[in-house]
């Protein structure tokens, strides 16, 4: 395998890891506050549709991004209503949100565009175009560092840089701010937070809202940057891979980055079977690579390789007095 193939492979790793990373951090905020969220998939899908649809109608991708975030926040509010206010089952609420998004996106797409559940193809200002970082063209001729900078680091859409910047930001918010401390506490022991006079309900709604925001960006990335338009079921299980990455990362922001990059690499390798054959001298089934994130997560969950312990109050509705 030559150097350029490696660069290409890592480049598509970054592209494929970005939506996983955003959704994984989204899940991190929610689950660290004690709200399980298996509706990441649905929120991404809804955001993907509304960003592509509004971008196609208005011609502005930024309006599209806002619409996508709005749709995702709306579903987050529904999840909050069901699991925080009405103390319902958070897992069942997540399942409902996934189906709601899967059905509604096609229904509305068919009503608005009549193209079999897809949006028109996006181009120009209706899409997030790759950004060339300063100096990339000049450096491109320098050996090793040149291609590394010009091909791998430069030339992604703004959302990719936002996703990577979200990792240190998440770390800072969770571990260096008062809000972050309370958020983590509410996922471990909500009664203690309540005793301290801080509203459990408000904290949990805030966490669920941040989750919606990040899922919205992830969905917008899918339909306006990674691809040029929405197609039916385009999230294709990414919300669940993000969930797997979250467990793999044991609910920590930096590890979420590593886990999603690893799962992104599996995705990139799936499209380049020739590279695997060249490197390990053996054919690996595409299906195996596709299933690897799930298999690895089950192994981690089983505690054979380090134990993944979720936030202690995760999944439990908080009742003030019994």
């Amino acid at each position: 395998m030559d150097f350029m193939t490696l660069i290409q492979l890592l480049d598509s790793t970054i592209r494929l890891a970005t939506p996983l990373l955003l959704a994984c951090l989204a899940g991190l905020f929610s689950e660290r506050a004690g709200i399980f969220d298996i509706g990441l998939e649905g929120k991404m899908l809804a955001a993907a549709f509304f960003s592509a649809a509004i971008a196609a109608l208005s011609g502005s991708v930024w309006l599209g991004l806002l619409a996508g975030i709005g749709a995702s926040l709306l579903l987050s509010a529904l999840h909050g209503l069901a699991s925080i206010t009405f103390r319902g089952n958070q897992l069942i609420s997540g399942v409902a949100i996934n189906f709601l998004a899967a059905g509604m996106t096609v229904l509305i797409a068919q009503d608005w565009f009549r193209q079999g559940g897809r949006t028109p193809s996006l181009s120009g200002n209706a899409r997030f175009e790759p950004i060339t970082l300063p100096g990339a063209d000049q450096l491109a001729q320098v050996p090793v560092i040149g291609p590394l900078y010009a091909e791998l680091i430069s030339g992604h859409s703004i959302l990719v840089y936002m996703a990577f910047a979200a990792v240190p930001l998440t770390w800072w918010v969770l571990y260096r701010t008062r809000f972050g401390l309370r958020l983590r506490a509410v996922g471990e022991n909500p009664a203690a937070v309540d005793t301290a006079g801080v509203s459990v309900i408000a904290l949990r709604y805030a966490a669920v809202a941040i989750c919606g925001l990040l899922c919205g960006i992830a969905g917008a990335y899918l339909s306006t940057a990674l691809q040029a338009g929405f197609v039916k079921d385009m999230s294709a299980g990414r919300g669940f891979i993000a969930l797997a990455a979250l467990i793999f990362a044991k609910w920590r922001p930096w590890h979420a980055l590593y886990a999603t990059l690893l799962f992104g690499l599996f995705g990139a390798l799936e499209t380049r079977p020739d590279v695997i054959t060249a490197v390990i001298g053996m054919k690996v089934q595409g299906q195996l690579l596709g299933a690897l994130p799930y298999i690895m997560t089950v192994i981690i969950l089983a505690g054979f390789v380090g134990k993944a312990i979720p936030p202690r109050a995760g999944g439990l509705p908080y009742v003030k007095e019994r």
């Binding site: 009405f86 319902g88 609420s93 399942v95 949100i97 059905g103």
Partner: peptide, 11 residues
Amino acid sequence: ALVILFTGALD
């Protein structure tokens, strides 16, 4: 989805 929502999560 609505049936799951109302009979399950929003019970």
